[in-house]
Design a protein around this nucleic acid. Structure first.
Lengths: 199, 199, 199, 199
DNA sequence: GATGAATGAGGGTTCATTCAT
DNA sequence: TATGAATGAACCCTCATTCAT
């Protein structure tokens, strides 16, 4: 809990957890495996996290924060039209598969599980990630580049689902196929931009 | 105790497993809970399935077969244009939320896990479900109602992802909101039909 | 229990039990394996035997009766001096390894276990087998061919132990080495005859 | 909880296993009984041993090493002729019944079972124990006190079998009869010494 | 703070036995 | 009498968590 004491060790544990959870799945992963990977004693993990579930939640929040931050930066760097930034976002999401394959596997496979937790624990980081998409769509609706009759929230969810499924495919079908990322991003960009533009 | 090892009992166990896995998740579910729900002794489950994993896989295959069969029937009944049948399919998928909420939860949450198995065990039922979508899209491409420059497989995957995510949302945010199904289906239908039609 | 009804089926079960117990050991053997080997339903076994333990005990008694009967016959056929008949008995015992290897394995390995039962259930068949030996020794003592200062019971026990250990060795070290039987019998005959004869 | 995984605890578990296995037999004994006897949690056993079988094997090796060491010491202390040391060894073996009745029961009853394992796992400790006997006999053959025409290995095996059977009898027929040990040892000593000496 | 040996509740699975047919 | 599907008690083992050092 002493998030302040040795943040470096906390990060080492989170990194280890990401690797182990990605490889074996949360439920099959053992706390002791995470500890070994982090070069830390089993008990040490409990100095930083309440229990295994708490480790999962913290890992999820930490990585989602990271992705959200990165997304904001990409959006800023890109600038330009809402549609352009939507295409950029699609690319950014799929690139997770080549940049951090463990993270890709973790998000696509384990996120749904934690959606199970979600009923108890509302999932604000995921909502925030969706919000980025939704804001882009609403911006487009205001400037006329996106049809006004669409429910921005529903479209954001649909797009996230499509991206997530595609990311899963890229991740599972051999991590090697990362070079397919730009092409897949283009296809999805075409599909959705055509879908949301006014005639 | 009826004499013959009956397919009816197998179905009772599968139904019980669906309910229990949907409520608690595969990993948190106990075999004994499935047994109680099925009104069967613990050991009986092992007369019909090799182990807990095997029960999951069989449940998945059985239910996917059911959904695939239903989808084919809906497509036949609908007839008409490819685009019309795509809209119909979207509706059919989301309706799982109101018709069989447990099945909806099972598919959206546990399917990804079994995607973990997927690496060893290629997931043919899921592919078959995707195939229905892909065939519709390719049919549309042949008759000119769908743009030819899209990769039918990628589009099918994207649509499935979007549907799955939407189904998850409908399922988790209170099962009560089933009345939102037609509206959500319309939104997704609009989005994708616009996305795939030629200008 | 209805030992009278179909003695043939009872024997089939006993033969199957012998084979299975010899191969896998009593505790590792499953009743269902015995049933399959006997070409009988699991439940049928319980028409002939109270339970698995009872099957073991009956098997043991049945086979010991057989061996005792055979031993008496061999002794009669042999005739002659007590010492000669002792040598003959040694040979007969070791020959079990080549004549009925399963029986050899069963006796050498499982008998001790049932010695565990023995505390509750005194083991009369084993005693009867020992008695044959003891009688031979006492006969020798009466006719002066065996030293009178030996305790016939102790000698009988010692000889049985030696035979049993040798039989175990013949059985475990590949059942193929059955041709060593006559030589091993000769060695043991020499050893014990020298040991028990007066100077 | 002392910090280091201690050899003392390993010994406590082995001692407990000996007691429980002797009383109930390996297959009837529960791991939890061993744990309770050792005043240790069930799981602790698995820190020291891979599984129940591994516990049996280790127990067997540990106790055989102990007996072999003791035997060597007795032989050294005794000194003198080969025949004298053979008599000493006979006494030492039977004394196990009064000195460590649990060990006596364990060896006589469970060793044969592990002979089952033997086919896979050649049983070196047992061979080493036999070797002591065999060496004594061969020594006697060299100095002329033992007949040269006997196969030392076969004789060693025969003697071990006789000793083992006698030890079993002493152990099972009430542990009280320990006072019979010297007399039984004398009888066996007479029998075998006469048996192996040249005329 | 860090360690890792120890804990012990919990659960998947087996299999001897039963009993409706 | 024979069957074999069904039962459910029993048990080995795992692993998240604790706590003495």
């Amino acid at each position: 809990m002493s998030r302040e004491k040795t943040p470096e060790k906390r990060q080492r544990i989170l990194a280890a957890a990401l690797k182990v959870f990605a490889q074996r799945g949360f439920f099959n992963a053992k706390v002791s495996e995470v500890a070994r990977e982090a070069q830390v004693a089993d008990g040490t993990i409990y100095l930083y996290f309440k229990n295994k579930d708490d480790l999962l939640i913290n890992l999820f929040e930490d990585r989602m924060e990271f992705l959200i931050r990165r997304l904001h930066e990409e959006m800023e760097r890109e600038g330009g039209s809402a549609l352009g930034r939507i295409r950029r976002m699609i690319l950014a999401h799929l690139r997770i598969a080549e940049e951090w394959p463990d993270l890709a596997e973790f998000i696509t496979v384990e996120l749904r599980q934690s959606a199970k937790f979600v009923k108890e624990y509302e999932n604000p980081k995921f909502m925030e990630y969706l919000k980025v998409l939704r804001d882009l769509i609403e911006e487009g609706q205001r400037d006329g580049s996106v049809r006004a009759d669409l429910d921005a929230r529903a479209v954001a969810r649909a797009m996230f689902g499509a991206l997530d499924e595609q990311l899963l495919a890229l991740t599972l079908t051999g991590r090697a196929r990362a070079q397919e990322v730009p092409r897949a991003a283009e296809q999805l960009g075409d599909l959705f931009c055509a879908g949301i533009q006014p005639r």
